[in-house]
Design a protein around this nucleic acid. Structure first.
Length: 459
DNA sequence: TCGGCTAGCACGTTTGAAAGGG
DNA sequence: ACCCTTTCAAACGTGCTAGCCG
């Protein structure tokens, strides 16, 4: 098996001609996504971000706010978010630390949140920050509102997909550029475990102002049930002890080597890596090991997964070349960045001709020219990738959830079966076999191959 | 017994309609 | 009649809490 370093070095050479050339390669590799409020995310990340999940759905805080550049101004794009498990474990909060509490529960129905503005022109996405404020997380596996379903006490990180597509239904012919930000990883909880997180949320979330110390909540806190106070007091570092102990409790050092390894790397990789972009092509019969160009001269450039997920073009389909610089394990927690309030990634891949020309016969202009954007109700909702065929592992049903319309099946989508979380180490037998199943030929597989947004067998 | 989950609560923000003024 | 600003209430988001449940 190739070592990580060996794999890394394989990406350092110049791109093959097939990757660098091609008319459709224009700008494909130059999309850049920046995470806003990076400092805030980092603050949470250093403590161990927790996100409340409730039955009716709960917003994230901090919420995902991005800025995009490098898009073709007059081409339409769709922005998607999904949540990827960090690992295959369930956690528990014990004595100010997260500890592994067992194997992860079977994966809930995988849903992808579609940004309500989608599809919109590149100029639209680039002119201002893109906010996923209204994205909600739930633990209700029977949720009908299209919220993203997660398991409590499990770790996840959001994955952002930029798809050049005229509409939701041409997504399948389009290129996915996927970005992840290590700072955005979190533990889904039904009640906050780490009081430092609670305090951070209260201090930064305007909706929680009522719980701030300087607010009118003093009376409320004074009325706290003594029993409850006592109960809470059992946990060291409860309320108002933040200043006393600023060091992150983090995750239990002795519980889970894989995770701790990442945590340990957090410090090492600071100022180094922050964004991972994924480029992958589950549809190509064989995954070609991509090659990256030199990193941009940016001090905040960080390791990334850069994958491009392709769907077969109706006519001319060009095999995808994937770029993967960082072969780090599935957990992306262990990195951070320098930064000035933003975490960004600029793909270091050469442009790749992967987007088939849009059908010119298609009704409605897809590029430059006046084209009023459809109302949010046209597309807003969630792609629901539910497990569909029990007897056919890996095949999932893909549905579009919309608050304004009934469910619309898009077809069958291939994906991992339930309980197929990647192990902490990315190169174990199971993981590799899964990668093989998708036709990936190299060992440098990350979590993306386990959790394809769409898979070739669906199209 | 214990940890996780949930409903109800109080408090604050957001939002949009209505009212008023220029 | 139109536009802008202000006001206000409903809707919504938030963490806290007690109690339920497996």
């Amino acid at each position: 098996m190739q070592s990580i370093r060996e794999l890394k070095s394989n990406f350092s050479g110049p791109p093959p001609a097939s990757m660098a050339a091609g008319p459709d390669a224009y700008l494909q590799g130059s999309i850049r996504m920046t995470l806003e409020d990076l400092e805030l995310w980092k603050t949470f990340h250093e403590i161990g971000t927790e996100m409340i999940i409730t039955k009716p759905g709960r917003r994230m805080f901090p919420h995902c706010k991005l800025s995009l550049s490098g898009l073709i101004p007059c081409a339409k794009y769709i922005l998607l978010v999904d949540m990827v498990p960090e690992d295959g474990f369930r956690y528990k909060w014990n004595k100010e630390k997260w500890e592994v509490a067992g194997k992860a529960e079977p994966q809930p129905p995988c849903r992808t949140y579609l940004h309500p503005d989608s599809p919109a022109l590149g100029s639209h996405w680039m002119k201002q920050s893109v906010s996923f404020l209204k994205l909600k997380l739930t633990n209700n596996t029977l949720d009908q509102h299209g919220h993203i379903i997660l398991h409590s006490m499990h770790r996840y990180h959001p994955r952002f997909h930029v798809v050049q597509a005229d509409d939701l239904f041409s997504v399948r012919w389009s290129v996915f550029q996927t970005f992840t930000f290590p700072e955005t990883s979190f533990t889904a909880v039904t009640a906050y475990q780490n009081t430092k997180i609670t305090k951070l949320k209260i201090n930064h979330n305007p909706f929680a102002k009522g719980f701030r110390d300087e607010g009118t909540n003093k009376k409320r806190r004074a009325n706290k049930n003594p029993a409850c106070v006592e109960k809470r007091a059992k946990i060291p570092g409860v309320l108002n002890e933040d200043s006393k102990d600023s060091s992150s409790p983090g995750f239990c050092q002795s519980s889970y080597d894989g995770y701790n390894g990442e945590e340990g790397r957090l410090v090492k990789r600071k100022d180094e890596d922050a964004v991972k972009e994924e480029r992958y092509s589950p549809w190509s019969a064989e995954r070609q090991q991509g090659v990256r160009t030199d990193s941009p001269a940016r001090t905040d450039t960080r390791d990334i997964y850069n994958t491009e997920q392709l769907v077969p073009a109706p006519a001319s389909y060009q095999p995808a070349h994937e770029y993967r610089k960082s072969p780090s394990p599935s957990s992306s927690v262990g990195s951070s960045i320098t930064g000035s309030g933003r975490s960004s990634f600029e793909p270091r891949v050469p442009d790749i001709a992967t987007v088939p020309d849009h059908d010119s016969s298609k009704p409605g202009p897809s590029h430059c020219g006046p084209q009023p954007l459809p109302g949010p109700q046209d597309y807003s909702g969630v792609l629901n990738m539910t497990m569909a065929q029990a007897g056919k592992p890996g095949v999932i049903g893909h549905h579009i959830y919309s608050p304004y319309s009934t469910e619309q099946p898009l077809g069958q989508w291939s994906g991992p079966g339930p309980a197929q979380y990647p192990p902490p180490h990315p190169l174990t037998a199971d993981y590799t076999s899964q990668a093989v199943h998708h036709g990936y030929h190299h060992g440098n597989v990350g979590e993306w191959s386990q959790y394809p947004l769409f898979s070739y067998s669906c199209w």
